[in-house]
């Protein structure tokens, strides 16, 4: 591998995680926003419960505003996007300026949408920018090992969120399979520490898909513990 520093590897991993978190929560929020047209805003409590986010909101209006846009709410979609951007900013030389610009665009557009009465429509360009970000890192990054670490973070977050959001089992299992494959193929060379017990548990889950539902919470914990990057003595931005 080239000259990826110890600090960068942590940022690469978390860049992947936060960007994917924003993407999945945004999609999930879009689906939720559609449902409440018939089911009413109070349905938000159920949504929060599903994604393990504490209900700190006064009512559905407060939820729609703060959960989506409040940069001081650590669970808000926007604050997660700012964390993705923060990791991207310190990785400009790895991910390249065009990739970083898509995160910046996403953040700027997101911020400008606060207060809108057509939230799904107005936030669409944010999702487009994240798609563009993924395309850009794949096209522009010249250090493939660094790219793999971003994808590893993305794969971890993807499964984590799918499990939390109780997405269709087929999707979750596909994500899980992708994660295990990624870990087995690449992580050995990436410098991340793999928790072998957690990996073994995830492989067992793939071998017994019918038990996915009953093992959901345990699997979430296994995914969280799968990769250890904190040995780098840094914290995610």
């Amino acid at each position: 591998m080239g000259t990826i520093t110890r600090i960068n590897i942590n940022n690469l991993f978390w860049l992947g995680r936060y960007t994917e978190r924003v993407f999945i929560t945004l999609n999930s929020f879009f689906r939720f926003s559609d449902k409440i047209i018939e089911q009413g805003g109070e349905f938000y409590e159920k949504y929060l419960e599903n994604i393990s986010v504490p209900n700190i909101y006064k009512n559905s209006d407060d939820f729609f505003d703060r959960y989506v846009f409040d940069e001081n709410d650590p669970n808000s979609i926007y604050s997660n996007l700012l964390r993705a951007l923060g990791n991207g900013i310190v990785l400009r030389e790895e991910i390249k300026t065009p990739s970083l610009s898509y995160l910046q665009m996403a953040a700027d557009k997101f911020k400008a949408c606060r207060g809108t009465d057509k939230i799904r429509y107005d936030l669409l360009p944010v999702r487009d920018a994240i798609y563009a970000f993924w395309g850009s890192v794949d096209s522009n990054m010249t250090d493939f090992d660094a790219l793999k670490i971003i994808h590893l973070g993305k794969a971890v977050e993807h499964v984590d969120m799918e499990l939390r959001l109780s997405l269709p089992e087929e999707e979750t299992l596909a994500g899980l399979q992708n994660l295990v494959k990624h870990v087995e193929r690449y992580v050995g060379q990436s410098g991340c520490i793999i928790n072998k017990v957690a990996l073994s548990a995830l492989k067992s889950a793939l071998a017994a898909p019918e038990k996915l539902e009953q093992n959901r919470n345990a699997l979430i914990a296994d995914v969280e513990e799968l990769i250890e990057v904190n040995f780098l003595e840094t914290v995610a931005v």
Binding site: M1, I4, T5, R6, N8, I9, L232
Partner: peptide, 8 residues
Amino acid sequence: YLKDYQNG
């Protein structure tokens, strides 16, 4: 030297 994440 620059140390990389693998202590290289």
